[in-house]
């Protein structure tokens, strides 16, 4: 029983990470209907930046905030420079541009930081949370961070004019433009936010999987599964999907199929959701007019 509880709780911790990255995917999908294949590698690169800051002697939380700032600006720049020219291009071009970004970030990280695996510190030391047999401090911290991010985002999109403008731009670009919202910049801000959230996910997962240029491949796959499961245009669905996927992955890994087929589970989940309920649990069903 205790082992089961332990599996569920650490599944929730992993789920928090998937939820964050899924949230970043939703952020971009909502406004542009693009699935960002480079999201994982962007998060990975942000994590390397954090590693650089920490190694330069900055305290963890200052490095954390600095990384978020840099990631936000980088996200905006990527949208402005790389994505904007293909905004109206065919899907194939857009997918290829994302793949190009994925490859570029991966090789840049490999080039600058080499492919050797590095350890990454966790900010949640032993005394941060009460000791208990079920969860490590880092797992508790991860769940805490996920909820803080969620509450902040909810508040931002619910109560601030900028957040409301971003939602309006995503839902109805034409009318928003008439109402004086600069839709193009809202998309760029969305990219900035997505990069920031991704960076948080990266820094939370790095102490667990260790830092290397390919660390996000599996996490990204799970984030895709999570986002699809919850509905890729629904932030709350994506977060819920993240937690479900995290727990399911841990339970299946511990009791049913073992850890060696984890990625295959994600593959099956993705294909199954796409086939049987492409809109996910909470997504809008898209009806196209011919």
């Amino acid at each position: 029983m205790e082992a089961l509880l332990h599996q569920i709780l650490s599944g929730l911790a992993a789920g928090g990470i998937y939820a964050s990255l899924a949230l970043a995917l939703v952020m971009i999908y909502q406004s542009t209907h693009h699935i960002n294949f480079a999201q994982g590698e962007m998060a990975m690169f942000s994590t390397y930046l954090a590693w650089t800051f920490i190694n330069a002697g900055f305290p963890y939380w200052i490095a954390f905030v600095a990384t978020l700032g840099v990631s936000f600006v980088a996200g905006i720049l990527i949208e402005r420079i790389v994505i904007r020219p293909v905004e109206r291009a065919p899907v194939l071009s857009v997918v290829i541009v994302f793949i190009a970004l994925l490859v570029i970030f991966n090789s840049l990280a490999g080039w600058i930081y080499t492919y050797t695996i590095k350890s990454f510190p966790s900010p949640f030391g032993g005394s941060f949370f009460p000791q208990n047999p079920y969860m490590s401090p880092h797992e508790m911290g991860t769940i805490g961070v996920t909820f803080v991010v969620l509450i902040l985002l909810y508040a931002f999109f619910r109560f601030t004019p900028l957040g409301l403008a971003m939602r309006a731009a995503a839902q109805n670009p034409v009318s928003s433009r008439l109402a004086g919202i600069r839709v193009g910049w809202m998309l760029a801000l969305g990219w900035g936010l997505a990069a920031t959230i991704g960076a948080i996910a990266g820094m939370m997962v790095a102490p667990v999987v260790y830092l290397d240029p390919n660390m996000m491949a599996g996490v990204l796959l799970y984030a895709f599964a999570a986002a699809l499961l919850g509905g890729i245009d629904n932030p709350f669905g994506a977060v819920l999907g993240g937690f479900i996927v995290g727990v399911a992955e841990n339970l299946l890994g511990a009791y049913v199929i073992g850890t060696e087929l984890k990625l295959t589970v994600a593959l099956v989940l993705i294909v199954a959701v796409l086939l049987f309920k492409p809109s996910g649990f909470f997504g809008r069903v898209i009806v196209t007019r011919v």
């Binding site: 294949f37 899907v91 997918v95 491949a217 060696e260 984890k262 295959t264 593959l267 796409l274 492409p278």
Partner: peptide, 25 residues
């Protein structure tokens, strides 16, 4: 049933999962 981005996503998942499948005990 999948188009555009979704097909790319499903095949991408296939690509990522392949080495693991080949190693399966």
């Amino acid at each position: 049933r999948l188009q555009g981005h979704y097909l790319a996503l499903a095949t991408f998942a296939l690509a990522v999962a392949t080495p693991q499948l080949l190693k399966y005990k």
